[in-house]
Write a protein that binds this DNA or RNA. Structure first.
Lengths: 342, 342
DNA sequence: CTGAAAGCGCTAACAG
DNA sequence: CTGTTAGCGCTTTCAG
């Protein structure tokens, strides 16, 4: 027990000749403490370099003033934005964010985090775009703390996020409206990260909308880019070097849209003259690439999630479902009527 | 004190008719506990859904098993990578990462974090690319925990990072070696975020190297992109629409290099035929953009930082300085001899 | 308005 | 090998 040289509440009490309780109350400005004592205590606390011990407070009150944030990985716009949003409201309320980057956990003793990682160090949990096993959900239940998910619907956890079907339908209808009838799609599908929730609705909504409009969607035009720019570029490259390609690519994320654009250009084709490209997110780079997209605001979603769990930690009634988050079509320069049309 | 329904060490002791100490020891597999007891205790702990209380352990041992990570913001490749690296080693050692995104703190009660935020909840600190006031450094000292910085040198804190001068010199020499004599530079300079450390050495090293080689560097070719892609594109756009532009742009980060390439293309010029572009980082998108760059590995740097603070938490002697981190030139397709040369 | 005392859940000497 | 006894630093009744 190497508790450095930081002052404790007892020490400042001794120095002032008052009781620990008085100091404790004064420090927290509780009702029923004379303004003078409150002043004196605060000042000497300051002078003595007092910093409360989170552990002691936590043990005593049962509140850790910290919420856990589980992300599949850092470095992706959506996840980062959510964490930023969550962090913003938590900081404002004096809560810490304990970050769990599950990326590294996968593979090893994989995801035994509930028991081994979150040892009641957090008062609530915000999880981003992840799937959980029944076991994990059971442990969450045991933990008995507010949990909300952000992103695509997470089984077993209430989720805040956009309506993926609506978003994709809007994107698809935009290019259909421009006259495109040869449509391609790139989504995140594959079994690489089974624990990361992929918005399944997106592919489905694209297909349905395209089919209903009588558009042509060849099997080879349905790509999987794992939501990464580089990966999208790789898988799209052969398509645009082949003999038959779509005149519009509907992408489930802006990162993939950018990758697709790169592939298109490398193949000697131009956007939007030869191929239109539309994404989803309004990523920070979307404007720089003049990318048409369906804007959503993950930071705001994170803020909503954080506010809700904090409210519940403070005794607010549990909210069972969130209304879908906002999104809106942002038309820029990567979509245009297909070549040859007017 | 609403300590849910989780079992405590006392309860499992009672259920087994042994003492708390025995349970405590058994759970931690301490020497001097019969294999049988250890087995029994563990099993019933498991059955009773026991999860140790971090607060109690922390109070008792003085170790929180958590380290704080301070970043200027999330969503930038370098910062994200460092956090990922730190998180990776911490997770492996059973430590939590408490993330402080200072972005939001700036402006408000700005950066009183040491006292108000880190209430001894962390056993160590890793800070990324930040500057601290003397006041803050004093509070760090008071905290008396291992602290290491990652990135450009941080005054008052030992830092792990690449030698910025060496990196920039290498980049500049690469284009000089290709025959370029009209050089431009884009760095992060400005007063926007005074608390974020900007690698000052980079601009200086570029200048020195360029001058020594007798290259031409017009004043309007020295840009400030704040290390953001979009910003870089904006400031570079007018340059490449003007009458006089450099044949090679040396960029202090890949994100800015990409922005510059966008601006070049928009101006109707081509990379590398008209303008060569070289960056720094080997960002995850560098390969997709076929960008020549000076690779560094911020994740590895974060890992080194994390390993060192953990070692010191465990009693290892304090390390006063780190050797410079590795970097290497990665030549790809965005640099070539200047037009007209052979 | 203030003090005394009892814990929060766990670890850590000391004794057996 | 196991039990007892003190705390860690703070909050919180319950009495003055």
């Amino acid at each position: 027990v190497d508790s450095s040289n930081l002052a404790t509440i007892a020490e400042i009490a001794a120095a002032l000749g008052v009781s620990k309780s008085t100091v404790s109350r004064a420090l927290r400005a509780m009702p029923g403490v004379s303004p003078e004592t409150i002043e004196t205590v605060r000042r000497t606390a300051q002078e003595m370099g007092y910093i409360p011990s989170g552990a002691a407070v936590g043990l005593s009150t049962g509140r850790n003033h910290a919420v856990g944030v589980l992300v599949p990985a850092l470095g992706r716009w959506f996840f980062d934005s959510v964490v930023t949003g969550v962090g913003r409201v938590l900081a404002a309320q004096g809560y810490d964010v304990v970050l769990f980057d599950l990326d590294r956990t996968v593979g090893e003793g994989a995801r035994v985090f509930v028991r081994s990682i979150l040892r009641r160090r957090v008062d609530a949990l915000v999880v981003v775009a992840m799937m959980f096993s029944d076991e994990e959900l059971a442990e969450f239940a045991l933990l008995d703390i507010p949990i909300v998910a952000v992103g695509p619907p997470t089984a077993g956890v209430r989720t805040i996020g956009v309506n993926d079907a609506a978003v994709m339908t809007a994107a698809t209808e935009h290019v259909l409206g421009l006259g495109h009838r040869r449509l391609g799609f790139i989504g995140g599908y594959d079994n690489e990260s089974p624990s990361v929730v992929s918005p399944a609705e997106r592919e489905h909504a694209f297909m349905t909308t395209a089919m209903n409009a009588g558009a042509v969607v060849e099997a080879t035009w349905m790509l999987s880019g794992r939501y990464r720019c580089a990966r999208a570029r790789e898988v799209a490259a052969p398509l645009f070097r082949s003999a038959s390609w779509p005149t519009a690519m509907v992408c489930a994320s802006d990162e993939m849209a950018i990758g697709v654009m790169l592939a298109i250009q490398e193949a000697g084709l131009r956007v939007p003259q030869d191929v239109s490209v539309i994404g989803v997110d309004d990523h920070e780079l979307a404007e720089a690439f003049d990318l048409t997209t369906c804007r959503q605001d993950p930071q705001a979603q994170g803020e909503i999630a954080a506010r809700q769990v904090l409210a519940e930690v403070d005794g607010a009634p549990r909210l069972d479902a969130f209304p879908p988050a906002d999104f809106s079509l942002v038309v820029r320069g990567t979509t245009a009527p297909p070549h040859g049309s007017r």
